[in-house]
């Protein structure tokens, strides 16, 4: 059976949160993880490959692509305010609210493949959950080290259960 393909969009993935990679890499025959640390990286990977589960942080930097840079700039050059993760999810599911010229995805991504893993409060991401995003996991001090695998399993389970 091919491994579950996970894309983790998280700028801290290689800094404070790098330990979270360990459990997924350990199970690399069942879970294959790829990282995007900026919105531009995520866009490039999403245009090139297909993923079963996409885990998105809200506060990510724009990277090199001019469209993401423009959105970032228009929101005050602050990743906490810009919330590029939200724009990215909207772009993935085809409900983009940005007037920037973002490239089209080769395959639309169903919202139920997407999970939000962020330090933001749930009410701040409610509009994204209303789009059909599978789940919201807060980055608090209580999540286990294998959180990425758990999120993945919950997203895959939710695929068979419509989002309420």
């Amino acid at each position: 059976m091919p491994p579950i393909r996970i894309l983790w969009i998280e700028d801290e993935a290689l800094y404070q949160l790098n330990a979270l990679m360990g459990p997924v890499l350990y199970n690399y025959r069942t879970h294959h993880i790829e990282l995007a640390t900026t919105a531009s990286d995520a866009q490039r990977l999403l245009c090139q490959g297909e993923y079963d589960v996409i885990i998105v942080d809200m506060r990510i930097p724009p990277g090199e692509h001019p469209a993401w840079k423009n959105i970032y700039r228009s929101q005050g050059n602050d990743k906490n305010k810009a919330r590029l993760g939200a724009y990215l999810i909207e772009w993935m599911v085809g409900h983009t609210t940005s007037d920037q010229d973002l490239p089209a995805l080769p395959h639309p991504i169903p919202a139920h493949c997407i999970a939000i893993f962020t330090a933001e409060e749930s009410k701040a991401v409610q509009d994204l959950l209303n789009l059909g995003v599978a789940l919201y996991q807060p980055k608090d001090s209580n999540y286990p080290d294998d959180i990425l695998i758990r999120i993945t399993e919950r997203v895959l389970q939710s695929k068979s259960v419509p989002y309420a």
Partner: peptide
């Protein structure tokens, strides 16, 4: 080893 695990993947 985390880096090596990445290569193993």
């Amino acid at each position: 080893p985390l880096i090596a695990m990445n290569a193993l993947q």
